[in-house]
């Protein structure tokens, strides 16, 4: 078991967004987080990433620390749209806390960034401007950055939102590949069909309740509802 949540309440200073979240995630799991807008999916991911503190309940990481193990891919911000930065600069910034305490990146950091870009097929874009890339390429850059930070867990917040179907399907292949290589993936998505195709487990937010089930159970439950 890699991540465990027991009766977790997530939210902000002005109150909880979702309560009584329970799940256990094993190493190498591919978990889809699905549910309505505003039901607390992003809030949960931010809590897992350590951006906000749990309001109540238990959240534990085993065999890894949040800082060392987790690579986070947040939703796009307005700032990034016209941000002047090269692909290499952004990917390298995934190593920001792994420089061994020194202020500058060392050879190992640069090598890691190079490897991750290669893995995602964007090494030929290294010197290109991020703001001029297509949506799919931009997401790969941010995924490569997350990989630079991640040892074993990827937290992805709607990585295919805004992508055209072809780019989305390439992105899914990328993530599938990373999962096959042993990465635990926790991904927010609106795409239930792809969840049924790729996921091992599904965490569903509905109203103010959540349930954590295997894909098979989720599929049969859906069948019954229809």
């Amino acid at each position: 078991m890699q991540i465990q949540c027991k009766n977790l309440t997530v939210g902000y200073e002005d109150g909880p967004v979702a309560e009584k979240i329970n799940f256990e995630i094993e190493e190498g799991d591919y978990v889809y987080v699905v549910g309505d807008n505003g039901s607390g999916k992003t809030t949960l991911l931010k809590t897992l990433a350590g951006l906000i503190k749990p309001l109540d309940g238990l959240l534990t990481y085993e065999n890894t620390t949040k800082e060392a193990g987790v690579g986070y891919l947040p939703q796009h911000t307005q700032i990034q749209k016209d941000f002047p930065a090269s692909v290499a600069e952004i990917v390298l910034s995934g190593r920001v806390r792994k420089t061994g305490g020194g202020p500058f990146y060392n050879a190992e950091d640069k090598k890691t960034a190079q490897e991750k870009m290669k893995k995602l097929g964007i090494e030929n874009l290294a010197s290109k401007a991020y703001r001029n890339l297509s949506g799919g390429q931009q997401q790969r850059v941010l995924l490569a950055r997350a990989l630079c930070a991640a040892e074993s867990i990827l937290l992805l917040d709607e990585p295919v939102s805004g992508l055209d179907p072809a780019a989305a399907s390439e992105m899914y292949d990328c993530i599938r590949q990373l999962n096959d290589d042993g990465m635990t993936v926790i991904m927010i998505s609106h795409d239930v069909d792809s969840a049924l195709e790729y996921a091992d487990k599904i965490l569903e937010f509905r109203g103010n309740r959540t349930r954590f089930v295997s894909k098979e159970l989720y599929r049969s439950a859906r069948g019954n509802m229809k």
């Binding site: 931010k46 990433a49 350590g50 951006l51 949040k66 800082e67 987790v70 986070y72 891919l73 947040p74 911000t77 700032i79 990034q80 941000f83 930065a85 600069e89 952004i90 910034s93 995934g94 920001v96 806390r97 420089t99 202020p103 500058f104 990146y105 950055r145 997350a146 930070a149 937290l155």
Partner: peptide
């Protein structure tokens, strides 16, 4: 100059930087 890399990370994506432990 000393903070350059961290300043870049915080400027480009504050949430990511924070999640990485900055």
């Amino acid at each position: 100059i000393i903070m350059y890399n961290r300043i870049f990370a915080v400027t480009f994506d504050e949430d990511f930087a924070k999640a990485s432990g900055v």
